[in-house]
């Protein structure tokens, strides 16, 4: 198998918290190398404390062992830090269809999150994944997982999750 084929095999590994996405389209897999009989896979955490990373590591090993690789080594790399900009357009659309508002591309010169009043520091409107309305408001900057925030749509009166742009 070539590294490209291994990468293709890794599209079977899903994010356990967001099962509509695989780890390749999320941009978590940074590199695949073959050295003799050993496959090295570099992955980068979406958030340092994300508990899904352990599950993902185990799933990578399991998936590649099922393809006949006995030696699979997963390396956690922090540089460059993961950004939602690495998520493919296809992945964003899958998120939206799943009911999670996808992260917008980060502005090239996104201002640092400095301690200004929240109304000023807040980014562009987040469209509702259900009805598309921009009449939405954040109910909490933190959600059920480290990567998401909670929003509410005033138009269709639905609460929804938003994948934070980082």
């Amino acid at each position: 198998m070539t590294p490209a084929e291994i990468l293709e095999a890794l599209t079977e590994v899903r994010d356990p918290e967001i099962p509509v996405l695989n780890i390749v389209e999320m941009g978590i897999v940074r590199d695949v190398r073959l050295e003799g009989d050993t496959v090295h896979v570099d992955i980068t955490p979406t958030y340092t404390g994300c508990p899904a990373m352990r599950t993902i590591e185990a799933a990578i090993v399991q998936t590649l062992q099922a393809r006949g690789f006995q030696q699979v080594v997963v390396h956690k790399v922090f540089r460059e830090p993961w950004t939602t900009d690495w998520m493919t357009d296809e992945a964003r659309e899958k998120l939206r269809a799943y009911g999670i508002a996808p992260p917008p591309p980060r502005a090239d010169e996104a201002p640092e999150l400095i301690p200004l009043p929240f109304s000023v520091a807040r980014g562009p409107a987040v469209p509702c994944p259900f009805c598309g309305s921009e009449q939405t408001r954040q109910t909490s900057a933190f959600g059920a997982t480290a990567c998401k925030a909670l929003f509410f749509c005033e138009a269709c009166q639905q609460p929804f999750e938003y994948f934070k742009a980082i």
């Binding site: 955490p45 958030y47 340092t48 404390g49 994300c50 508990p51 933190f142 959600g143 480290a146």
Partner: peptide, 10 residues
């Protein structure tokens, strides 16, 4: 709890 998780990650 999210903030705690970040700190534990660091």
């Amino acid at each position: 709890a999210n903030l705690a998780l970040d700190c534990l990650g660091h």
